[in-house]
């Protein structure tokens, strides 16, 4: 069963081909990692999938439906939720409210519900509050629920962003360099959280530089270099692939973690 399917996705910036006819499929479960040296086109690829950029060529399907070039909020509404390389929290809200805001897609009500507070709106508030606490518990942030998002240390801000993304009940969760700026302990904890997310039936696609995280977490690895897909397979296979070794530091073996 395929969740995400890329068919010859290409993005050109003037003369530069940042993503060059990339195709791959992602199953409805498990963790897939996209790796590659700096400038390989990973972040551009993520922007194309999440709707922040439109591809110059090719098509992207989510659950068999064409999502090529639709707006980011519409991509999110179809169940594909992303996080950001530089954490993008709602700094003006508490930790708990960030996760409540993440449930926007699964709640309803506008100005009438806000002012008149009918019974269904009050019940919905209670439900999303309970769900927000569950998610904070899951990532280990429930002690800081009333703190401001910006008061959290960087590592915990990342976890909060993951909790907020999960609040949107994704079918596919896109994590953009989730381990960036984390220390070894925090990375290990994050790896555990990603595995548990995958076990609950949410497919995860992550871009990552941190090979330890990738080798310990991913079920499948896609390798990009100069915008092209050069390998795809199990972490152990990819690690030994000569093309991959050549792309990384001209042949040094990767992934001692």
């Amino acid at each position: 069963m395929t969740t995400l399917s890329l068919k010859n996705v290409t993005r050109r910036f003037g003369g530069l081909v940042a993503v060059d006819s990339v195709s791959f499929d992602i199953g409805s479960t498990g963790v897939t990692a996209v790796i590659g040296p700096n400038g390989a086109g990973k972040t551009t690829l993520f922007s194309l999938i999440s709707g922040a950029l439109a591809p110059s060529d090719g098509q992207i399907f989510l659950d068999g439906r064409d999502i090529t070039g639709i707006r980011p909020e519409d991509v999110a509404a179809r169940g594909l939720i992303r996080t950001f390389q530089l954490v993008q929290l709602f700094q003006n809200m508490s930790v708990l409210d960030n996760v409540k805001a993440g449930q926007h897609l699964h709640t309803r009500g506008g100005i009438f519900a806000a002012l008149a507070r009918p019974g269904w709106a009050r019940r919905e508030e209670t439900q999303i509050e309970a769900r927000a606490w569950e998610l904070l518990e899951f990532v280990g942030l429930s002690d800081h629920a009333h703190a401001f998002a910006t008061a959290l240390p960087y590592g915990q801000q990342r976890l909060l962003e993951v909790a907020r993304a999960l609040a949107a009940k994704p079918k596919l969760l896109l994590l953009d360099e989730p381990a960036a700026g984390l220390n070894a302990d925090e990375t290990k904890r994050l790896s555990g959280i990603i595995r548990r997310i995958a076990e609950t039936g949410t497919a995860v696609l992550l871009i990552e530089h941190d090979m330890t995280l990738v080798m310990n977490t991913a079920d499948e690895v896609v390798v990009l270099d100069f915008g092209k897909k050069i390998a795809q397979g199990l972490p152990e296979e990819v690690q030994k692939n000569p093309d991959v070794l050549a792309a990384y530091l001209g042949g040094v073996e990767i992934g001692h973690g």
Partner: peptide, 14 residues
């Protein structure tokens, strides 16, 4: 408040 905090993140959450 989400729009105020980060438009990109707000859109990414639908």
């Amino acid at each position: 408040f989400a729009v105020a905090g980060s438009e990109d993140a707000a859109r990414a959450l639908g």
